[in-house]
Design a protein around this nucleic acid. Structure first.
Lengths: 157, 157
DNA sequence: TTGCTCCTCACGTCACGTGAGGTGGC
DNA sequence: TTGCTCCTCACGTCACGTGAGGTGGC
């Protein structure tokens, strides 16, 4: 149960669900360094560092560039106080929470549009009108005052 | 109130909340063509086509490549039947719904981790231990059986 | 020693960003 | 005619993908 159990890059990539190129690129950007190197240059990673990979991935999916992520989760400098460091950690977590809120709102909006479009699509089965490229709106529906949902007018093209 | 009101690419980009380069690139990939061109080559777009831009953006944010999006929402071919076309539209919408479900689950998981880490971080203020690069785990917490949340062990580095 | 894993270049790709140099439209 | 918008190359960028050619580790 030694804390110094180390993995070669291939094994680490497997447990972190990523690949060699990505890990080397993260190292190049200073995002995640291997715990040590062998004499021959082989990278050795700590198992616990998978959490860091997952965090980086999570932030990327929220739309952050790797450089921005580096700013957020960069390591503690030699001259940084404990309070300053904990403050930065908290700020990074709160930033992530804010981004999650934004993303949640966007997804709910998308879901609303998709549901509306699917519901409308059921009605279309009994209608013989076919919008086309030069006529990207649904005349029958417009005429009865029931306009096409946005997602459908985007697909009928 | 003519249906043929057309916008130059700059005005269209403004209402679609995008830019000239992106619109030209979408056209190059066959994702969205202007309704017409002037003699001098100027692109003219229909106002209703903003919905298509928004749909493409939504699908991109769900992680789809533009070529995959082209497969999903490509226009109706000359020889495609009405039923086939409506079936494709429905499949595209259902695919989007599936992707939204996945994304929602991933975001809820991230939110859980962030909340857990922020809660734990409050406790850290009264603790004097500082994990560092060579010791990326929190000994005091581990010793009392209260392990660090994953997001914190990723940040303490 | 064999075979698998790893190493460092280095060029390719996707979805644009960003000028350069020139022309269209009211 | 002036000025703003648009046009088509074409090279740059970010986050990797994908070999080429060579060496390390058990």
């Amino acid at each position: 149960m030694s804390h110094s159990e180390l993995l070669k890059i291939g094994d680490f990539a497997r447990v972190a669900n990523t690949n060699l190129r990505t890990l080397r690129y993260y190292e190049e950007l200073g995002l995640l360094a291997p715990a040590s190197r062998s004499r021959g240059g082989f990278r050795y990673y700590r198992r616990t560092d998978v959490h860091r990979v997952i965090l980086i991935r999570d932030l990327q999916e929220l739309g952050l560039a790797l450089e921005r992520i580096h700013d957020l989760i960069g390591s503690r400098g030699k001259h940084e106080s404990r309070e300053s460091f904990l403050g930065r950690v908290r700020a990074a977590l709160e930033e992530q929470g804010r981004l999650l809120d934004e993303r949640t709102r966007a997804i709910e909006e998308q879901r609303r549009k998709v549901h509306e479009a699917l519901h409308k699509l059921a009605e279309c089965r009994d209608c013989q009108h076919s919008p086309c490229a030069m006529n990207n709106f649904c005349e029958p529906c417009a005429n009865t005052g029931a306009a096409l949902p946005e997602s459908l007018s985007a697909l009928y093209q």
